[in-house]
Design a protein around this nucleic acid. Structure first.
Lengths: 156, 156
DNA sequence: AAAAAACGTTGGACACCCCAATGAAGATGA
DNA sequence: TCATCTTCATTGGGGTGTCCAACGTTTTTT
């Protein structure tokens, strides 16, 4: 029985059992693990995502990158500043559209991305270390559905 | 096969499938849902937790409250300022130990806590709406184990 | 040519998390 | 008793991730 209300149970324990609370905890743990893993490279999670997006969709404008990754344009500026300073991407004006910057991956960027992928995988392995492989698979599948920001279709 | 490295797969899609990424997304969604649910009361998640802790361990000092909930003393001050201003708790000097404040729940605090519990449950129901009841139970069980910050016993 | 949209940038805000230092007060032990 | 150590509440600061509003410039649309 996992009834939502059990008045006898301590209130704080109930909160600590809520998915929202657990998700916050687990996400924090993941952020910490990834932060430590990426510390060598001086990068963080958003850098990894943007670098990967640049690798995927080739030389591309910042706005398209933002649409792809879901990052705010404001934040994209900072992320790309960091990546550019680390010589992992180049940012050059687009001759065909003078509003745009063309973001392209450098050779260093590609190799760094490979390192980040390995480090990220390792951190995620540590994150799910408490689960068996089968449980991990199941957990990720369920988590993916929870993470999906799907509109509650009003069933037209 | 959920091998950690599949070079052909787009890099960003791989990142988006990482537990750390999904946890961040799902936690953000939960925070947003809870934030909207608690907006009426003018409170947020930490307020809920602290209010619940006060209800659980009766009139109690701030430090004990911090140990119970895991919140930083600095943040506890702000949270209690809010709760006190909303007349949900009282904060009075402890006669037996003039260092301490005695935090006690008011009648309004108790009824507000009940409302928050209902709102929290509802938000969490929306958060896990994509899952069947059986999946929900399984997900929460797995998530709880992932959220646990257990030391990797070095097997002494 | 005028209006609308997209682009990169800047400034600001919010939620949650964590650490360091301080003055006041209690606990400890020589 | 007196000095030391600890606890308490508070203040000040930092860091990550997310999001919104506005601006000047440039391209597209009408």
């Amino acid at each position: 029985m996992t009834e939502p209300s059990e008045p006898d149970e301590p209130a704080l324990d109930r909160i600590r059992a809520l998915p929202s609370w657990l998700l916050n905890r687990a996400a924090g743990r993941g952020r910490r693990l990834l932060g430590e893993a990426f510390a060598h490279e001086g990068l963080r999670m958003p850098h990894h995502a943007v670098l990967a997006a640049v690798a995927d969709i080739g030389p591309v404008a910042q706005a398209a990158l933002g649409r792809e990754t879901g990052f705010d344009p404001k934040d994209m500026v900072g992320i790309l500043n960091d990546l550019q300073r680390a010589l992992l991407v180049t940012r050059t004006p687009d001759p065909h559209d003078r509003r745009k910057n063309v973001i392209a991956l450098t050779a260093e960027g590609r190799s760094c991305l490979e390192r980040l992928a390995l480090l990220g995988d390792e951190a995620n392995r540590a994150l799910l270390a408490a689960l068996t492989p089968a449980e991990r698979e199941q957990f990720v599948a369920l988590l993916a559905r929870v993470a999906e920001e799907r509109e509650e279709g009003p069933v037209v």
